[in-house]
Design a protein around this nucleic acid. Structure first.
Lengths: 250, 250
DNA sequence: CGTGCCAGGTGCCCT
DNA sequence: AGGGCACTTGGCACG
C-alpha cells in the first residue's frame, strides 16, 4: 500500500519518484537548498526539510516550525527530477504564472509515497456568508422594520454585503464583518456611501457596519463619519439539530 | 535517526507519539475523521489524510490535493493522545484562542518522526517593502523633484506608505501596492486624503497610487476622484551582484 | 496582549 | 483569464 525508503541513495530516490510521480503523494525529507524565482525571489540555504509533492502537482516545503510552508509551488506545477553529481535535483516550473522552484538534495533521510483515498466533503459553518444568511432571514437582528433588498450588490467601488430599506423608506448600506473590523472596513463603507450619493444626487442613505464585535476606535471613526454600527453574534445550526454561538467554546 | 512504522496498531501509535511528541516532528497518515470547533465549526468525514505535528505544537492536516491544509491548529496547541475502542485519538486544544480539534484514526498506514536540523535563514526579495525602498532611494521614478518626507506615516484611517512634497511644495500621499490594486486601494487612498484635508483645513494635497500594473477600472476610479497613478516595476539586486526585474521570468 | 497590514498570500466565485 | 473578496487567513512589526 504505502512505500517507504530510509536513507536511500540519490539514484534510488530518482527511480522511486519517477515511478510514483502523479500516481501517489510523495514525501521527501532531507537536507536540501530551495531557490524560488517568480512572484518574488528567495533562497533557502542548506537544511533539513519535509517536502510533499501532491498528485495535483503542488509542492509544499515545510520547516520544523510554523503552520506555513517556507516554499511551495501551486497546483498544476510541472516537475522534473534528476541526479547530478550525487545530488538529487527537483526542478519545478509553472509557466502560466511564470514561476520556478529548484530543490537540491544533498541527502534524503526519508522517502515515502501515499495513496490517500479521500472523497468526503468537509462541512464548515461560521463563515461571513452564514452570518449574512442569518441577517437576511431575520433582518430585525439589525433593527425593526428593516427590509433586505439585495445581497452582494455590485458598485464601482466594490460590492456591498447587503442593501436594505429601513422602516422610513431610507436606503441602508450594510457591511458585514465576521472578524473585528479595522479602519479599512470603514473606508470601504464610506466609499460605497459616497458612490451611492454621487449616483443618486446626494440622496439620504445610511451606512451600518455589522460585526460580532466593533472595536472602540472603529466606533468613533464610524460616528465621526455619520455611520452606524451593530454588534451581532450569529447562532449556527448543526445537522444534529444543535445550536451554538460562534463565541461559545466547547 | 528517523523512525518509522508501517501499519502500526493503535497501541503502537500511542506509544510512538507519546515518546516522540515535541521531541521530533511526527507524521501520521491514515484513515480518520477531523472535527474543529473554535473560530468556526467544521467536520470532515472518514477519509485518508496526512497529518504533521510539529515541535512548536502546530498541527497540519493535508488531503490528497491542494496547497492548503483542510484542517489545522496554530503553534502553541496542546495535544493529548489516547486509544479508545481500537481508535487512536488526538485531542488538540488551544485555550488562548479557544479552539479545539479532534482527530479519530480508524487506521494508521504510516507513522514516522523526523528531527529536522534547519537553522539557515531564508533570503527573500521582491516584497512591497523592497519596492518602497527603491522609491525612497530614487523618488524620480515617481516624478522629478519629488522629496520623500516620511515613510509609514500613521493616520486615523490607517498608515500610508509614503508622504512626500512635490517640486511645487504640494504635499503628496503615496500608496504603494506590490500587486495590481483593486478599488479597495483607492478607498484606502481616499480615506487618507479626506483625513488629511479634514485635519489641515482643506489643504491642497495630491494622491498617487503606485503599482507595477494599475488595472483600467482602477485608473478610471482614481481619475474620477482626482487622484493619480504610476506604473513602476522595481529592479532587485542580489548578493551575487545581479539585477532582475520582478516581471522577468527565468 | 491588541492593532494594523503585507503575503510568492490561497481559494472561490463571478464576469 | 481576470477581478473581487473572504479566510479557522498566517505572520510580523509595533504600540
Amino acid at each position: 500500500m504505502d512505500r517507504i525508503f530510509l536513507a536511500p541513495s540519490s539514484d534510488e530516490v530518482f527511480d522511486f519518484v519517477s515511478r510514483e510521480h502523479r500516481q501517489r503523494m510523495i514525501i521527501v525529507a532531507g537536507m536540501c537548498t530551495v531557490e524560488y524565482r517568480g512572484r518574488a525571489f528567495s533562497f533557502l540555504p542548506l537544511g533539513e526539510r519535509l517536502v510533499m509533492v501532491k498528485q495535483d502537482g503542488c509542492v509544499i516545503v515545510h520547516r520544523s516550525r510554523g503552520r506555513e510552508p517556507v516554499n511551495w509551488m501551486p497546483p498544476g506545477t510541472r516537475l522534473d527530477y534528476a541526479v547530478d553529481d550525487q545530488l538529487f535535483l527537483v526542478h519545478c516550473e509553472k509557466r502560466s504564472s511564470r514561476e520556478k522552484m529548484v530543490m537540491e538534495f544533498v541527502e534524503v533521510n526519508l522517502l515515502a509515497s501515499l495513496l490517500l483515498n479521500d472523497s468526503g466533503q468537509q462541512s464548515l459553518v461560521g463563515l461571513e456568508s452564514d452570518m449574512v444568511d442569518q441577517i437576511v432571514e431575520q433582518p430585525h437582528v439589525l433593527e425593526d422594520g428593516l427590509r433586505i433588498v439585495r445581497r452582494e450588490k455590485q458598485t464601482i467601488s466594490g460590492s456591498i454585503d447587503l442593501f436594505a430599506i429601513d422602516r422610513d423608506g431610507v436606503p441602508v448600506v450594510v457591511e458585514v464583518k465576521r472578524n473585528p473590523p479595522g479602519a479599512q472596513a470603514v473606508s470601504q463603507l464610506e466609499a460605497y456611501i459616497l458612490d451611492f450619493r454621487e449616483k443618486n444626487r446626494r440622496a439620504v442613505v445610511r451606512g451600518i457596519l455589522c460585526a460580532p464585535r466593533v472595536p472602540r476606535m472603529v466606533r468613533t471613526l464610524l460616528t465621526d463619519k455619520g455611520f452606524e454600527w451593530r454588534e451581532f453574534t450569529p447562532i449556527f445550526e448543526f445537522e444534529d439539530g444543535g445550536q451554538r454561538r460562534l463565541d461559545e467554546f466547547i
